[in-house]
Amino acid sequence: MDLLNALVALANFVLIPALAYGSQLALGALGVTLIYAVLRFSNFAHGDTMAIGTMVTILATWALQSLGVSLGPLPTALLAIPFGIAGAAVLLLLTDRVVYRFYRAQKAKPVILVIVSMGVMFIYNGMTRFIIGPDDQSFADGERFLISARDFKAWSGLDEGLALKSTQAITVVTAIIVVAIVFWFLTHTRTGKSMRAYSDNEDLALLSGISPETVVRVTWIIVAALAVVAGTLYGLDKSYKPFTYFQLLLPIFASAIVGGIGSPVGAIAGGFVIAFSEVLFTYAWKKVLGYLLPETLQPDGLVQLLSTDYKFAVSFVILIIVLLFRPTGLFRGKSV
């Protein structure tokens, strides 16, 4: 019985939250890694792209809500995601046209594009704050729990409850669908394959008649979709605050690099590695150990390895360890 209780507590406080957070990071990292593979630079504006795209989703959600549209038990935001994606895609394509394209034509080195992306980051950040403000926004509605702790206790007769927030379930399911579509696109469509070809060998792609501008445009559109879905899921699951999205940049970069930057499979794996390590190291294990250990060995403290504020430190240490042992990341990266 104690073992079951321990398992439920573990699932409730560690596995489920980490799975949801990992899905969000994976989607973010997939976007970063695609830009790295195709446009060959790390996009510092990615966190703010997520923020601004999610902002459009939120505004659309509010509009739908005020029109009385709802999805019943599901959050209305799911209906608003296409608007967010459209908004982000327009913004990214416009940015590419006005900003990035010039440097491609100049054959600027990728590092220059990184600095350019800092400028874009400032602008997106300012725009988001200008339009929706720097504060917390709530936009989740619908059913809060798929399984509530109380129902679970009544059903199982255990002391420990298992709560599954609907946003967590939605996050994982949506992430699986989106990732499956992206991978199918990359490996089974002519355009997807041309993206991989361009990423692998730009000159040869040109010789094969692949248009770089088309590849770049398609990439930005996919990135917009990934960023908005990741941002909206994160906002639903936790909360929407522009600055938090900016701060997600570090775990997202860490996920992409841990997995092997440039490798889509790596980005997914990296997202989960980072999420699970963050949660495992910052979770207070007292409860779980309380069920497992005999009375005499009961811990006094919280048995928390690190305070939650150190979650960035965890991403970072995992990153360093992976780089020391396997400098190319878990899935040899650098091309799609």
Binding site: I112, M118, G119, M121, I123, G126, P134
Partner: peptide
Amino acid sequence: LESVQHMRLLTMGIILLVVLRFAP
């Protein structure tokens, strides 16, 4: 009027982009 304080971020971004473009 309330959002004016966020103008400085926009301005910095624009300065950076303009400099990189016209006087790299």
